[in-house]
Amino acid sequence: MKAYLHSIATELAARVQSNDELVAGVEGWTADRIRTKTGIAERRIAAPDETAGDLCFRAAEKLIAAGNIDRSTIDALIVCTQSPDYFLPSTACVLQDRLQLPQTVAAFDVTLGCSGYTYGLWLARSLILSESAKNVLLLAGDTYSKYCHPKDLSVASLFGDGATASLITDQAANVWAEIGPSVLGTDGRGAPNLIVKAGASRQPTSEIPSDRYLHMKGAEIASFAVSTVKGVIERLLDKVGLKATDVDGYLFHQANPVFVQRLVSAYKLPPEKVPVGLASIGNTCSATIPMLLEECAQAGRFKPGQKLVLVGFGVGYSWAGTLLEWKKS
């Protein structure tokens, strides 16, 4: 039994927010500074009444239409989001109905951010290898812009809103890639470094306005990434018996283009093996890796047989690396 990535579809929030628009009225920031420091030229912003669930829904409909996928064959639905439609029920339950999936489907949310897609691949593959499912619809989407204070450009400049839909299947026909093993990890000591403190059960309300918005300690997050991602790659390669020279591509969580380039440079990885993207979308959290993967697939960047290492890392702290063997010609 094997698990395959059949295809991916991407859906972006419609509104484009330029750096010029973002910095208007905010002292100490310029559009050029944002572009230079992050590589982000513009970002997608969800409408006030548009949720991650809506974006996931549209991505799923695109995927189903493009692949002529029979909805009745989907037996598991995983929605990875940190921007759920409601505290309860889960967004997956809402989307089971909206997508008209069978009532026999197992549907649940995974509340992870930047590591969410690689966790989702691990989970979907595990369901298939254990013969618990044959076709898993993996949706990853977020609307972090709604968590960002409009004047806090240290975060508002980075995040964009969008979603992806991926079909993970046990059938080898016409697939993009075979999904290999994963390595995963968690360090909850990093929880305060990327957090929305107020609004949930621990702190339902706060008199401190900033507690209701996304708070990020950038230096700690960068240090976490630098100190973690290399180990994830090494653990994964050790697990699957490959050497670094066997890897044809590294697809990292796209925190922002400059961040990824700095990581490449810090690890002395061959830049040509590390695609960098989403400069006009922003950091869409769990959706950055599948968006980049789709972009690469459409561009014909990978050849059959090539080995790709995917690494998601961030909020939690949480991280996961997954091996793909490319199949699509």
């Binding site: 420091k37 230096a219 960068a222 240090s223 976490f224 630098v226 700095r262 002395k268």
Partner: peptide, 20 residues
């Protein structure tokens, strides 16, 4: 943002990984 650059510099130029 400059501190982030310093973190990357220490890893890139000195192979030095800082605890977060």
């Amino acid at each position: 943002m400059a501190v982030v650059e310093l973190v990357f510099m220490l890893q890139r130029d000195y192979d030095l990984t800082l605890p977060p």
